[in-house]
Amino acid sequence: MIRFSPIPTETARHYQAGGLDANGMPPEAAVSDGGGNPCRHCLKMIAEGEAMLVLAHRPFPAPQPYAELGPIFLCAKACAAGGGTELPAMLASPDYILRGYGEDDRIVYGTGAVTPTAAIPQRSEALFDDPRVAYLHIRSARNNCFQCRVDRA
């Protein structure tokens, strides 16, 4: 069984309070156009006209060569953490990159693949059969942006 995990609530609250992002910059305030702004904390699309933040995020515990950094969207107001065993509503594209990482937070080579959205749960289960895989990232298949994490439930 798998669990879809958002960025930690303490991280989201840090950014929502104006805390510096992974580039040492304050988050940029923006307004959602409703066309595809997934919040990495509630794991829902940010509705058209809603305030949001755009910022650089590194979903790893520390910088290292495999610790990718990139842009994410976040609700500007405090939102409830999403996640669970069901595919998050924010995964609205036809496919995503699904990639495994080891306990050392480095890519497990051979695990990354563009995966149809509907197949993410089954592919996740298969990747977790590999004992080298500690967790997975779901990333945009077009821009490589971090979407959410997948853990063993």
Results as ranks from 00 to 15, higher is better:
Val133Trp: 12
Arg3Glu: 09
Arg99Asp: 13
Ala81His: 07
Gln64Phe: 13
Cys42Thr: 14
Glu48Asn: 13
Glu68Ser: 12
Thr117Met: 09
Thr9Ala: 15
Pro131Lys: 02
Pro61Val: 12
Leu43Lys: 06
Ser93Gln: 14
Cys39Arg: 02
Ala118Asn: 08
Pro59Leu: 00
Tyr66Gln: 15
Thr115Ile: 12
Ala81Glu: 14
Ile2Val: 10
Ala29Leu: 10
Ile97Val: 15
Tyr135Arg: 14
Glu10Lys: 05
Ala153Gly: 15
Thr115Gly: 15
His137Leu: 09
Cys39Lys: 02
Leu20Arg: 02
Gly49Pro: 09
Ala12Thr: 07
Met45Val: 06
Pro6Cys: 08
Gly18Ile: 03
Ala62Leu: 13
Leu69Gly: 02
Leu55Lys: 01
Ser32Gly: 05
Met52Asp: 09
Met1Val: 04
Leu136Cys: 03
Ala76Met: 04
Ala12His: 12
Phe128Trp: 10
Tyr96Ala: 11
Val31Arg: 07
Ala119Met: 13
Val54Ile: 11
Leu53Glu: 02
Phe4Tyr: 15
Met1Phe: 14
Gly84Phe: 04
Asp104Gln: 10
Thr111Cys: 13
Tyr15Arg: 03
Cys42Tyr: 14
Phe128Ala: 05
Ala89Gln: 02
Gly49His: 05
Arg3Tyr: 13
Ile120Asn: 00
Tyr66Met: 12
Val108Asp: 02
Asn37Tyr: 10
Arg132Ile: 06
Arg40Trp: 06
Ala47Cys: 03
Val114His: 01
Ala80Glu: 11
Leu87Tyr: 06
Gly70Thr: 07
Val54Asn: 03
Gly84Val: 03
Leu127Ile: 02
Leu127Ser: 09
Arg132Leu: 01
Pro61Phe: 13
Arg139Met: 08
Arg132His: 14
Pro26His: 11
Arg149Ser: 14
Phe128Lys: 00
Leu87Cys: 01
Arg58Asp: 05
Pro88Met: 06
Leu91Tyr: 09
Asn144Gly: 07
Gly112Val: 10
Cys148Leu: 15
Asn23Val: 07
Phe146Ile: 03
Tyr109Met: 14
Pro65Ile: 14
Tyr101Leu: 09
Ala56Trp: 10
Thr117Asn: 11
Asn23Trp: 04
Leu87Ile: 04
Arg132Ser: 07
Ala22Gly: 00
Gly35Arg: 03
Gly102Gln: 03
Met1Gln: 12
Gly19Thr: 01
Pro6His: 04
Pro63Met: 05
Gly112Ile: 09
Glu125Asp: 10
Ala29Lys: 12
Cys39Glu: 00
Leu55His: 01
Arg149Tyr: 13
Tyr135Cys: 13
Pro71Trp: 08
Asp130Met: 12
Gly100Trp: 02
Pro116Cys: 01
Pro27Asp: 08
Ile2Gln: 01
Arg139Asp: 09
Thr85Asn: 12
Met25Asn: 13
Leu53Asn: 00
Arg152Gln: 11
Leu20Asp: 00
Ala56Arg: 01
